[in-house]
C-alpha cells in the first residue's frame, strides 16, 4: 500500500514515517501542505496512492478542502482518506466526512491505533478496488443485490455506510449523545428491485439520496445508504424534523425529479420514516446497534403500511 501523509508539523510526518515504515511494509510519501500534496498526486506518473492521512489545520488549503479536491479525481473516488487532526469539534468532524473522509483520528494518537486503522483502511481499499474493477468491466451491473450498499457519489452529506459507522465514534461525546438516528425506507423496495434493471434500481437509490439530502439541507446531518432500500441519517436532537413532514418533503421531491417515470407502470416511489433512535452510548458496538435499530424500524413501518394498504383494498379496513 502506498500512503500519502499530509501535515504541516514535521514531527508528525517524521512520526508517521518512522512508525509505518518500522511496523508495516507500506510505502510512505509526505507533504507539508495541500498544494505540495496535490502536486505529488497529479504527477504520480502512473503510480497512484492507496490511502491518505490528512491533517486539517494547515496554512493555505485546509485538509478538509484537500479531501474534497482528492475526491474529485476519478482514480481516488474510493481511496481511503483518514483525517489525523487535533481538531475534535463536531463541525470539523462533520466537514471532514461530508468532504469524503472515511475515518477520523484525533491527536495525540496511540501508535497501535494508527496501525489498526491503517489495516482497516487497507482491507477497505482492497474491497473498493475490486468493486471499482468490477464496475469498470461493465458500465452498470446487470443486477444489484437488494442488500447491496450501492455507492452514491456527489450528493451533499451522503457518505459511505462504513464511513457513517466511523463518523459516530469520532464525534465529541456530548455531540454524539445529543444526536439521534433515523431510518428512511423506500416503500415496496422488493417489488421495485424485482421489476427494474440494475441501472434503473441504482437510479432510484440515487434519486432518493438526492431527495433526502435536499429535504435535510437545513439540518446538521449525515446520510448513508444501508442497502435494502433503507437510508439512515444522524441528526442533532435540537434540530429534529417532524418525521411525517420529512417523508412528505422527500416524496414531493421524488415526484418533481420524475423518478417514477423510469419504472415499469410509472409506479410512484415513496419513502416512510421509522422511529427515532437516540444515540446513548459512545461505544462502536452500541452505535452499530442503534443504526441497525433505526433501519429495522423504518423497514417495519414500511411493511406495516403496505400491509394495511392491502387490508384497505381487499378487506375494507382503513389504512393507517
Amino acid at each position: 500500500m502506498r500512503l500519502l501523509a499530509v501535515d504541516d508539523d514535521p514531527i508528525i510526518l517524521d512520526l508517521l514515517n518512522e512508525i509505518i515504515r518500522s511496523t508495516t511494509s507500506y510505502e510512505v510519501a509526505v507533504a507539508s501542505n495541500a498544494q505540495e500534496a496535490l502536486d505529488l498526486i497529479d504527477r504520480g506518473a502512473g503510480e497512484t496512492f492507496d490511502c491518505f492521512l490528512l491533517d486539517i489545520q494547515m496554512p493555505g488549503m485546509s485538509g478538509i478542502e484537500l479531501c474534497r479536491e482528492i475526491r474529485t479525481r476519478q482514480e481516488y473516488r474510493f481511496a481511503p482518506i483518514l483525517m489525523l487532526t487535533a481538531m475534535a469539534e463536531k463541525h470539523y468532524v462533520d466537514g471532514a466526512y461530508s468532504a469524503g473522509a472515511n475515518d477520523y483520528i484525533t491527536k495525540p494518537f496511540e501508535v497501535t491505533e494508527i496501525n489498526r486503522r491503517l489495516t482497516l483502511a487497507q482491507t477497505r481499499a482492497t474491497q473498493l478496488r475490486e468493486e471499482a474493477a468490477r464496475a469498470l468491466q461493465s458500465d452498470t451491473p446487470e443486477r444489484y443485490g437488494i442488500l447491496e450498499r450501492i455507492h452514491i457519489f456527489d450528493v451533499d452529506n451522503v457518505v459511505d455506510y462504513v464511513a457513517m459507522e466511523n463518523y459516530l465514534p469520532s464525534l465529541p461525546k456530548h455531540s454524539l449523545l445529543g444526536s439521534a438516528a433515523l431510518g428512511i425506507q423506500i416503500r415496496g423496495i422488493e417489488d421495485i428491485h424485482e421489476n427494474t434493471s440494475g441501472f434503473e434500481f441504482a437510479g432510484v437509490i440515487e434519486d432518493v439520496a438526492e431527495a433526502i439530502s435536499d429535504s435535510l439541507r437545513d439540518f446538521q446531518c449525515l446520510i448513508s445508504y444501508a442497502g435494502n432500500g433503507t437510508f439512515v441519517t444522524v441528526i442533532e436532537n435540537q434540530s429534529l424534523p417532524a418525521r411525517h413532514v420529512l417523508a412528505d418533503n422527500v416524496n414531493l421531491r421524488l415526484q418533481k425529479l420524475g423518478t417514477h417515470l423510469s419504472l415499469p407502470g410509472q409506479r410512484p416511489v415513496r419513502v416512510i420514516c421509522g422511529d427515532l433512535v437516540r444515540l446513548m452510548h459512545p461505544t462502536t458496538e452500541r452505535i452499530q446497534e442503534a443504526l441497525f435499530q433505526a433501519t429495522a424500524s423504518a423497514l417495519q413501518v414500511a411493511n406495516d403500511t403496505e400491509r394495511n394498504l392491502e387490508k384497505f383494498w381487499f378487506m375494507g379496513q382503513v389504512a393507517q
Binding site: I11, L15, S22, T23
Partner: peptide, 19 residues
C-alpha cells in the same frame, strides 16, 4: 509496545525535543 516501535518513537522524540 515492541522495541521496534519504541526505537522509532525514541528517534522522533529526540527531534521533537530539539524543535
Amino acid at each position: 509496545m515492541s522495541s521496534t516501535i519504541d526505537d522509532a518513537i525514541g528517534r522522533v522524540r529526540g527531534r521533537f525535543l530539539d524543535l
